[in-house]
Write a protein that binds this DNA or RNA. Structure first.
Length: 301
DNA sequence: CAGTTGGTGAGGAACTTGTT
DNA sequence: AACAAGTTCCTCACCAACTG
């Protein structure tokens, strides 16, 4: 006689791990079980749901549409249960944790540095790692826990992630002190005659958001230099006659640069902190996000 | 061909259920 | 309470399919 197994929490945890890893061996390692054990659990899940759930293909274990539909709610539920089981109270001073933050642009200066400093003083036993992050990878890495949170400019943010605005940023034009153009009338024509440096996070690009906005006005500018490391731009400007359109926060009081407003309207952007549903209720993660947010606001004042 | 991956069957520990 | 039988799910050993 065919009998349905009891669907217990361990089976759901296994299904969650299987759906994320798409590989029985890796799911087993994650669950601290052996591969045959998880294989057996998958068999029971298949019997329970009366669906193959994951089918073996050349690309790995691919979920069926039934399994696909289960993935998202399951991730949310498992995340909530993990939170439920965790101790509610924790002491930051004793907290031993490692945080992984991804950024899709150069936010280390405005977010990373104040956050790291704040974290060290509040929770000296924690560590934080910053990662370069492509927009396409963001959701997957947050969902799988390869990252705890991400920092990105709106509208790069995927819809189905939780997010919070950290601050609004606008662009300014930066150049060295005593640059000859400072003697000229600052118009769009003057702007377009200059030679620029540009920060390109992924590298190799000579055209960015500013060039798209210029194109809308039927104008263009010459970008002669593209660098991946935004932090180098102030030094670069000091030692050349290049100009750069940069986020206003990149120019600090003390780094001997002149600034000019953009001679055309530019919307700027919101800088967002993003995280996945599965860490939304986690008290340690909530606390970490609060520290990050607070560090950024402290910096702004 | 070796390495990796998932599956199967045997055997056993832990637990539940039924009977006395 | 005590015991036996049944159930569940683990590990171990091994097999088959696939990949580079």
């Amino acid at each position: 006689m065919r009998r349905l197994h009891n669907l217990d929490l361990n089976l759901l945890k296994a299904l969650h791990a299987l759906l994320e890893e798409r590989n029985v061996t890796r799911a087993a390692a994650r669950l601290s079980l052996t591969q045959p054990a998880v294989s057996g659990m998958l068999a029971r899940l298949r019997q329970y749901f009366d669906d193959p759930l994951l089918v073996r293909t050349a690309q790995g274990m691919m979920p069926t549409s039934r399994a696909e539909a289960l993935a998202e709610p399951l991730a949310r539920i498992i995340g909530q249960i993990e939170t439920l089981v965790q101790p509610l109270e924790f002491s930051p001073a004793e907290l031993e944790a490692e945080f992984k933050i991804g950024t899709t642009d150069n936010s280390f200066r405005t977010v990373g540095i104040p956050f790291a400093a704040q974290l060290q003083s509040l929770a000296p036993h924690t560590r934080v790692a910053f990662f370069k992050l492509r927009r396409e990878e963001m959701e997957e890495k947050l969902a799988k826990g390869r990252l705890d949170a991400a920092i990105a400019a709106h509208p790069a943010a995927p819809d189905n992630l939780r997010h919070k605005k950290l601050y609004h940023e606008h662009f300014i034009c930066a150049l060295r002190e005593h640059h000859p153009v400072l003697q000229q009338e600052w118009t769009l024509d003057t702007f377009c005659r200059q030679t620029f440096a540009l920060g390109s996070f992924y590298g190799g690009s000579f055209s960015g958001a500013i060039d798209r906005e210029l194109a809308k006005l039927g104008r263009s500018r010459r970008v002669a230099l593209s660098v991946q490391n935004f932090a180098l731009i102030p030094e670069l400007l000091r030692q050349s006659d290049l100009l750069a359109v940069v986020p206003s926060r990149l120019v600090q009081p003390g780094n001997r640069l002149a600034t000019l407003p953009l001679p055309f309207p530019s919307a700027g952007y919101d800088k967002l902190l993003l995280w996945h549903e599965r860490t939304h209720f986690d008290p340690v993660q909530q606390w970490m996000r609060g520290v990050l947010e607070g560090a950024v606001q402290r910096e702004a004042t």
